[in-house]
Computed example of a mutant assay.
Amino acid sequence: MRMLLTGIIFGALFRAGTGFLQRMIDPNEYSVVQVASYARFARVDAALLAVAGGVTCVALIAAWRMRHRLDVLALGPDVAINLGEDPRRGMFQALIIIAVLVSVSTALVGPLAFLGLLVVSLAHLITPTASHQVLLPSAALVSGITLVGGQFLLERVLHLTTPLVVVIDVVGGVVFLILLLRGRHR
């Protein structure tokens, strides 16, 4: 939760910086900055696609090889130590994999603030298990369905020009608040 709150604080800081830029630069130049700050699924840089695919495959293989260790880490630091797993090392390795995957997606389409939280929450809801052998593929499927289905629904069915990232941020923000309130009552 602390890492998530830190991300929200940095997001607010960057939005404040964007608001400052909006007041300081020419409105035409600001519109260029604003378009670049939204995730754009229709304009993926084809030159980055091969590199991103390779880096993503390596990170996914590393995550899959780590799936049993993630199950042990999910039991808590004391239990993980008793089972022979170093929690700090395991969490650091997981964070490296997460950082690589987030950086690849950000390089391809732009920032998506709440997609990870939304996908993990939906994957836990759909597959109520603690096994990462099931959670990792289900989270991948949920994220693909969310992005492709959401884009299709917005553009083809509803005929809206609203960026998908706005909808994901709204729904992800609501899920985040629900998780915070649920955690407070436990």
Rank of each mutant, 00 (worst) to 15 (best):
T106C: 01
V119H: 01
T127Q: 05
T56N: 06
M3L: 10
A47P: 06
L153V: 12
V119D: 07
I61E: 09
R69D: 09
D26M: 02
Q93C: 01
G144H: 07
E29S: 08
I178M: 12
A50T: 05
M1N: 09
V148P: 08
P111A: 09
I168G: 02
F41L: 15
L164P: 02
V171Q: 04
M1Q: 04
L112Q: 01
F92K: 13
T146D: 07
V175H: 00
S37W: 09
M91H: 11
G54N: 08
A62M: 05
V33W: 09
V72H: 09
L115E: 08
Q22W: 12
V166C: 07
G90R: 05
I145S: 10
I97F: 02
N28E: 14
S143Q: 05
L13G: 10
G144C: 06
G76S: 10
Y38H: 15
V58I: 15
S138P: 03
M1P: 08
R2L: 11
G17D: 05
L160I: 00
V33A: 04
R2T: 14
H159A: 08
M24F: 13
W64P: 06
V109Y: 04
V157T: 14
L125I: 08
T146R: 06
L112W: 04
P111I: 00
R15P: 00
V55F: 01
N82K: 13
R186M: 07
V55P: 11
V35K: 14
F20M: 11
L180G: 04
V33I: 14
R89G: 01
I126C: 03
G11E: 00
T6K: 06
V148L: 15
P163A: 08
D71A: 00
D86I: 02
E29M: 01
